[in-house]
Design a protein around this nucleic acid. Structure first.
Lengths: 367, 367
DNA sequence: GCCTCGTTTTGGATTGATCCAAATATGAGA
DNA sequence: TCTCATATTTGGATCAATCCAAAACGAGGC
């Protein structure tokens, strides 16, 4: 006791080597093991001991070494998150939802932006294995080999797929009912009197695309419009919306309404209409998907199938926590229900308003 | 050699305990140390040895254990990134820029969303210390105590501030010249004939706010307009823009132009004008800051001071790499030059176009 | 006073890599 | 063939925690 009082005195000049459990133990007059138990909030430790140890921890300015702990323990309280486009505000909101849950659970997460490259994604996943994360939240890149799931299972690595999924059930998944969302959009348009309804976007074969296309197909058939126009496949960017709608509007018969794969496309499509001197709502109704915050700020405000990204993020993170706590448990699919957020991009507009839209015929995505 | 050929044979049923350097060493007939050198791509190892070891690594399905490595090594190839609103597309783009550089450098990053809470930020930073990250990219939360920098220095933790900074130089920082950006905006408006120019937004006392206000102040004075209207302080959200401009337009004298703290505010402000039956550009010119992708998609397309978030992210990450490689080096400030992206939100509009904007008087941020 | 039984505490082994100083191998020149 | 410098390789110590079986402690009951 008296013997160890000098070395760990107040602030050491450079604190070159860090304070360890051993130092705390010496200072508090207990063993290394006991200190470890205190740190992990074990109920085994007597209250009096606990407070004494905690005081020593504070006094010596101890810093827990997670690397060392991870070497022996089974958990790292660490997660890997993969999205394919973090610059898309949809994913921003989703990541915020994930972060809010993880923060409560004392987890931290590695984030990677795969840019929809399976190779880049694979590299990150391998790195996550090296880091020994407790689990993954994965929004698989386009073209990801479904064998990836088997691989992860072989790694013994819990993985919750988000938004898109690959492979065959059972797997853990959190997302939204895209099929229902598109059905709501089609039904809404039909109720407004539309028949020539096109679905714009999605070429890659992943679940989120298939579900949307399926929803479109089913809803159109249910409305007896099965053979009227159809799906235009392509990338799902702003630019694709901008260009895609311009092509569509030059075809015969022209669609009277377009449902877009996501809001970015829809916003691009509205700009594309302007470029042609056409008016969103009047000349062609537009519906987007996601209901990102920007949707309310366009002119006209965009009607969109709200998919609640923040909630999806929360649900995914919670599911991951459950799976980590119980690795053998039954796989779960958490499917949120989308809701059509009606704004004004399907409203017809009085003819005398056209001039305004036509004022910016040379608007492009770049200027 | 023959002795160790059985245990690490092909796939073990459950691979319960992992393959270690020791196993590789035995398989390749070298020592643990040599394998370690191969893993770290040391030039010391002979080519023939290297290939043999690499073959063994592949054959046994070895997985590098970063936790164990971190225990001894000085680097973890890990970084902490803190932003205050990941749902803001500006930060999405910035994080994408960070990620692209880190990926090239073989780094991975922990991401946290502080939600502008200094407590939450502090908790994350402490966690990062426990994880022994090599450095931090920090966009400090509003109200962060400048002593934080001293604290981090005491921790011996390299930290690059991004976009905002606290404390006093020298420190590492990557951002943009907000002051110049606002000056560009003011000059542009004055050239268009505006005199009653208001700056909208920013109440907290951080560098990015001060710089903007300073830029506004200087530019207005340089133009001889120093006492004409001024700065309206407040939060910097979409909603604040929406509400702020409505208040402004009911005052006398009314401003003829508003420069907004960021694009979200500017987009909200344009919606606010509509709500009043006013026309952006005609009744009041609007300029935003950031030039997020959405800026091009509004109607009218928003004129904005482009701050290039992706590049800022890249520069910040590169600076962090430099600082980690050379902790004692001179602190650096990387200041990018903003550029005014002129679109149409300052154009006057023919009167007969008004009807269209007035069609959506009840538009709000929620619907 | 001794014996349980439950509560606390403990030491030694273990985790899987890196560091470092020293040992060994290799090759050129004398 | 020997020497010396250079190129490779190595074993032991070390990093800082957790796990686990066993020991110490303390309170009641007989």
């Amino acid at each position: 006791m008296a013997e160890s009082s000098e070395p760990p005195s107040s602030p050491r000049e450079s604190a070159r080597q860090s304070v360890t459990l051993q130092d705390i133990a010496a200072h508090a007059g207990v063993s290394r093991s006991t200190v470890s138990l205190v740190l992990r909030e074990s109920p085994l430790v007597a209250d009096s001991t606990r407070t004494r140890v905690q005081a020593s921890i504070k006094a010596l300015g101890y810093v827990y070494n997670r690397g060392a702990a991870a070497l022996r323990a089974s958990h790292t309280f660490t997660l890997g998150v993969v999205v394919y486009d973090i610059a898309n505000p949809f994913f921003g909101a989703m990541v915020a939802g994930i972060d809010s849950v993880l923060h409560r659970e004392n987890y931290v997460s590695f984030l990677a932006n795969s840019e929809d490259s399976p190779e880049r994604q694979q590299r990150f996943l391998e790195r996550m294995r090296e880091q020994r994360v407790d689990g993954l939240l994965l929004c698989p890149a386009e073209g990801t080999d479904p064998a990836l799931l088997t691989q992860l299972m072989g790694w013994n690595m819990p993985c919750v797929q988000v938004l898109r999924h690959i492979g065959t059930p059972p797997f853990d998944y959190a997302g939204t009912d895209f099929e229902l969302g598109v059905r709501q959009a089609v039904d809404h348009l039909v109720a407004l009197g539309h028949r020539r309804i096109v679905f714009l976007g999605g070429e890659a074969e992943h679940s989120a695309t298939r579900a949307r296309h399926q929803g479109y197909h089913d809803a159109m058939h249910a409305q007896g419009l099965g053979e009227v126009l159809g799906i235009v496949r392509g990338p799902v960017t702003r630019r694709a919306g901008f260009e895609g709608i311009q092509t569509l509007m030059q075809e015969t018969p022209r669609p009277t309404a377009v449902i877009c794969h996501n809001d970015l496309m829809a916003l691009g499509a509205m700009l594309g209409l302007q470029r042609l001197g056409l008016i969103p709502g009047e000349d062609c109704a537009i519906i987007g998907t996601d209901d990102i915050e920007e949707a309310a700020l366009s002119l006209p405000p965009l009607t969109s199938v709200a998919t609640h990204p923040f909630s999806i993020g929360e649900e995914a993170a919670r599911l991951a926590m459950r799976r980590i706590a119980n690795p053998g448990g039954a796989r779960e699919q958490v499917i949120l229900t989308p809701r059509l957020q009606v704004r004004h991009s399907c409203d017809p507009i009085p003819a005398h308003g056209e001039a305004l839209y036509r004022r910016y015929p040379h608007a492009t995505l770049d200027a």
